[in-house]
Simulated scan of single mutants.
Amino acid sequence: MRIAITGANGQLGRALIATLARHHDVVALGHDQLELSDPATVDQIANTRAEVVIHAAAYTNVDGCARDPVLAYRVNGLGTRYVALGCRRIDAAMVYISTNEVFAGTSHRPYYEDDPTGPINPYGQSKLAGEQEVRFLVARHFIVRVAWLFGGERNFVQTVLRLAANPPNGVLRMVADEIGSPTYAGDVAAGLARLITTDYYGTYHFVNDGICSRYEFAAEILRQAGIDTPLLPIRLRDFQRDSTPPPYTPLANIAGAALGITFRPWQEAVADYLERLRSAHV
């Protein structure tokens, strides 16, 4: 199968290439090859002659999106429209990588795939705009929401390790009332490799099993890494930032599980990732 991947240099893009290139003809499209906000993206996608396009590229700087909502929409909303139009032109199936932040965070249980959305920040709003473009323009589509993604060079796990090495005032502070679903990029890539071989189009939540707060996530990272830096829980309202994150957005993998696509506990995925980091520095 010929598969085009946007965002090829991102943490999910790299995991997808590593997973899919073993059995498929992969066309990798990084930022140097593709400027999403440019209408020329339509032609560039069409020129790949791909059977499946996995659109993993996005403007994911959540605080940057809050500072410049127009840029967020141009890249994540309009840019996704251009990718979708390119898919239409060559009759390619499309996979759109979306986010937990399309939800408001007011639920009292993990969100199901068809629960009402209601993003409360410009990043979530721009990603929801992308979902709407895909649903309208591409009949054969998979919308796959992920959350709290780690697996590359810049992510929450790496941030915790970096801050723990030199914590401000000797203490690491993490938010205890933001709850979500940690997700390992390699596990998402494996799940997508199975999903794209089916014709069960629709919306999916691909996250590792289990939920936690940012504080609990950080505590587990430190425990597994053997680091004893003091960790202090704080509240969302005490952490000043430009964006407002939804406080409770765990995702339930119901549609994927019905196809037999399930994910291991997030703690096991963290252990795998930390082992990979150790091996890379040996």
Rank of each mutant, 00 (worst) to 15 (best):
P39G: 08
Y59P: 00
G170I: 11
F103H: 15
V83H: 05
Y273N: 06
L128S: 06
L149A: 12
A93W: 08
P110Q: 14
P230K: 04
N253P: 01
A255W: 02
V171P: 00
A50E: 04
W148C: 08
P116C: 08
R276H: 11
G105Y: 13
N9A: 13
A129D: 14
A46N: 07
T203M: 11
P230L: 04
Y111V: 09
E275R: 15
L259K: 12
L85K: 12
L149W: 03
V62Q: 08
S181E: 02
A66H: 05
R194P: 00
P250K: 10
F150T: 09
A252V: 01
A4W: 04
L222Y: 04
R237E: 14
G191V: 13
G260P: 06
N121M: 10
Q33H: 14
A258D: 12
P167D: 05
V70M: 07
G86V: 12
L128W: 04
K127R: 15
L277N: 07
K127C: 03
G10A: 10
P250I: 11
I221P: 02
V282G: 14
P247D: 09
L34E: 03
T41K: 05
D91M: 06
P233A: 07
I179H: 14
R214C: 03
A15G: 02
D25I: 05
P122M: 10
R223S: 12
D187C: 02
T229E: 02
H108M: 14
Q125D: 01
G79L: 11
L163E: 10
L172H: 11
L231P: 04
S98A: 11
N253E: 00
P230I: 02
A225K: 07
D115R: 14
T80K: 07
A218W: 02
D25M: 06
A139H: 12
R81C: 09
L195P: 07
N9E: 13
L195K: 10
R2E: 08
R88T: 10
H205R: 11
I196F: 08
R49W: 04
A219F: 01
Y96W: 13
Q158S: 10
G210V: 13
